Computed example of a mutant assay.
Amino acid sequence: QNIFAGMEQTAVTDEQAKSGDATEQGESKTEKDEVEAPTDGDLKNPSKSVVNPTVPVQISNPTKKSEGYGRSYIAYTVTSTHDGKKVDVFRRYSDFVWLRQALEKNFPGCIVPPLPEKAVIGRFQGEFVSQRMRGLERFTTRVMNHDRMKKDPTVIRFLREQQLPQRNTIKSGTQAKKAFSMLSGIGSAMLNPFASEPTEGVETKEDKNCEEIESDAKKLHKILAALHAASSGQSKAEKDVTKTWLEMGHYLTELGRFEVDSSEEHFGGILAQIGKCCDRMSVCSAQCVDHSVLHLVEPLKVVYKLIEMALPHIRKKIG
């Protein structure tokens, strides 16, 4: 056993990847609102907003809401099944933060799955919103795949009750003291969905290997972080290529129309055909980018973040 909470990877289909054009959050009030808010089209079609209909908790129907004083946030419909009946509740990003902090307090010997990161700018843009939505669904899926966490009263309340209790955000410096845990190995930690019970004061065979495990974890974290940075950079470069194909298709099509209007129908037709080819290339390129982000960039980030969260636990065990 090990200290990682549910590690099952959420499967995402290509069709669902294209659909996540909007779901963002209720960020903390310190984050700045964007001048350009999502269009109605960005926040509609809730049925297609679900990342994966097979997961235990589905996130859908992102809706922009206002809380006054020019501040806006995005609320989600969180759907789960209890006693054979579907239950829908509405949650904003800060509600997920509250849930995670409560789980960290209630399960001090476990590594609670990470939430998607916040953003100061671009937080209402379709691409970021889509990534944020997938991240929230991965978080809830891993929580529900953990035998102990999914039964926690806080999780049950989060999934069933429309109104959550008034609360203050838990400061990182005042969190409950975490108990020691052991990590039996990086490989098994990546695959085992359960967390070990906290152990204190008893030296085991596994404890003697903690220093070696810490060294291996640091090396693995460094490699995965570098892979994520490289794959993320490649994805951005491919997005630029996609944009270039799209622009070429537009300008060639327009040039073809101009030539046709100038009685150069044959030449204009050729240019229009080339423009259509460029358009098709842009579509193919965009699909490749989506696939790369969903199945390479984001999974790499999740794994190296989990290892990053495990390192302090290992150091405590050594200490």
Rank of each mutant, 00 (worst) to 15 (best):
F4E: 02
A5V: 04
M7E: 09
T13R: 14
T13Y: 09
E15D: 15
A22T: 13
Q25F: 11
E27K: 13
E27Y: 12
S28A: 14
K29Y: 12
K32Q: 13
E34H: 12
D42I: 02
L43M: 07
K44P: 00
P46L: 00
K48E: 14
S49Q: 14
S49L: 06
P56V: 02
Q58T: 06
Q58F: 01
S60Y: 01
K64G: 04
R71L: 09
A75F: 01
Y76D: 00
T77Y: 01
H82P: 03
G84F: 00
K85Y: 06
V87Y: 01
F90G: 11
F96V: 00
L99P: 01
L103E: 00
E104G: 05
P116W: 01
K118L: 09
A119P: 05
Q125K: 14
Q125I: 06
F128L: 06
S130R: 15
S130Q: 10
Q131W: 09
M133C: 05
G135A: 05
R142L: 02
M144G: 03
N145M: 12
R148Q: 12
D152Q: 06
I156Q: 14
R157G: 08
R167L: 03
S172E: 13
A176S: 13
K178L: 02
A179Y: 06
M182P: 01
G185R: 07
G185K: 09
S188T: 12
A189C: 08
M190G: 06
P193W: 00
T199W: 05
G201F: 13
E203K: 15
K208C: 03
C210N: 12
E212T: 14
E214R: 15
S215L: 09
D216S: 15
K218L: 05
H221K: 15
K222H: 15
H228N: 13
A230D: 12
G233S: 08
K236Y: 08
A237T: 09
V241K: 04
T242N: 07
K243H: 09
T244Y: 10
T244N: 11
L246G: 11
E247Y: 07
H250T: 13
R257I: 05
E259Y: 08
E259Q: 12
G268Q: 05
D279Y: 05
C284T: 14
A286K: 13
A286G: 11
C288N: 09
V289F: 00
V302L: 11
L306Y: 08
I307T: 06
M309P: 03
A310K: 02
A310C: 14
R315Q: 12
K317H: 10
